[in-house]
Design a protein around this nucleic acid. Structure first.
Length: 275
DNA sequence: GTTGAGCGTT
């Protein structure tokens, strides 16, 4: 969804997409709009967000109408400090349609990047060097596996939550040498009994204490209830897609100014009024 | 509440 509330992504046939990276997770399109709009006409701004939390992934796509303005914004906003962090602005290489994009525009050819004569671009050197390393290695971010084990983890967490809630017998089994109050404080693990359980407070344990036998086989239980468990009716009830960036923006954005107003306000030939 | 390589739709 675009920030401009359109029916969908505008045609990129004549637009240039810029990839904005290294931005804060709290930076929204509203924060990038005035920044990019100052250097050119922004057609659309889209920020991929998490499908669960709804938070920004840390990068955004700014679509420009003209390459000149896009290129200018790249050099201008590339390295700009936003929300206390430097955002990296560069032309998108791939489009939403998995199309080969050159400089944000769909192209089949791959011409070499031209250098601007009016800018020295000393930042590109360090920027490129910064990424030129083996920085690709992901530590613990939500990249790559954000849709892998994460989805399984939440499901596992859901099963455990209802397991200990509907299994009072487990409390007696486990609460004999332990306080039941703290048992509900967090998710327990049946392995804690035979493994010791006393060191269950260890962060390393609780992080990897996922045994396949922690949950009883669903076939032994009620198939009907098991089906209900898989019902995705309401799972992320604790997830509130509330925008906390509102309080971060003390200044109101000029939403009245649409990027499409360029049709009357600006002409493709009027880009250079000062001739 | 956190995190930090990357390429995107409601």
């Amino acid at each position: 969804m675009s920030r401009f509330g359109r029916s969908g992504p505008p045609p990129i046939r004549d637009t240039y997409s810029l990839l904005v990276l290294n931005i804060t997770f709290r930076t929204t399109a509203d924060d990038l709009f005035p920044l990019f709009d100052k250097y050119g006409e922004v057609v659309d701004i889209y920020i991929p967000r998490d499908r669960r939390t709804g938070d920004s992934r840390g990068f955004a796509f700014v679509r420009y109408k003209y390459e000149d303005e896009a290129q200018k914004a790249v050099d201008r906003l590339d390295g700009r400090l936003v929300d206390g962090r430097e955002m990296m602005v560069q032309f998108a290489k791939y489009g939403p349609n998995a199309e080969r994009i050159q400089k944000g525009r769909i192209m089949e050819t791959v011409p070499k990047p031209r250098g601007r004569s009016r800018s020295r671009s000393p930042r590109r050197g360090y920027r490129d060097d910064h990424r030129g390393r083996d920085s690709r290695r992901r530590s613990r971010s939500r990249s790559g596996d954000r849709y892998g084990r994460d989805r399984y983890r939440e499901r596992d967490h859901h099963r455990r939550s209802r397991s200990r809630s509907t299994s009072p017998d487990d409390y007696k089994r486990r609460g004999r040498d332990r306080s039941p109050s703290r048992s509900r404080s967090r998710s327990y693990s049946p392995d804690d009994d035979r493994k010791g359980g006393r060191d269950s407070l260890s962060p390393a344990r609780r992080s990897t204490s996922r045994s396949p036998r922690k949950t009883p086989p669903p076939r032994e239980g009620s198939p009907a209830k098991r089906n209900d468990d898989r019902s995705p009716a309401k799972r992320n009830d604790d997830r509130s897609p509330v925008r906390r960036n509102d309080d971060r923006s003390p200044v109101r954005r000029n939403d009245d100014r649409s990027p499409v107003r360029r049709n009357d306000d600006r002409s493709p030939d009027s880009r250079s009024p000062s001739t």
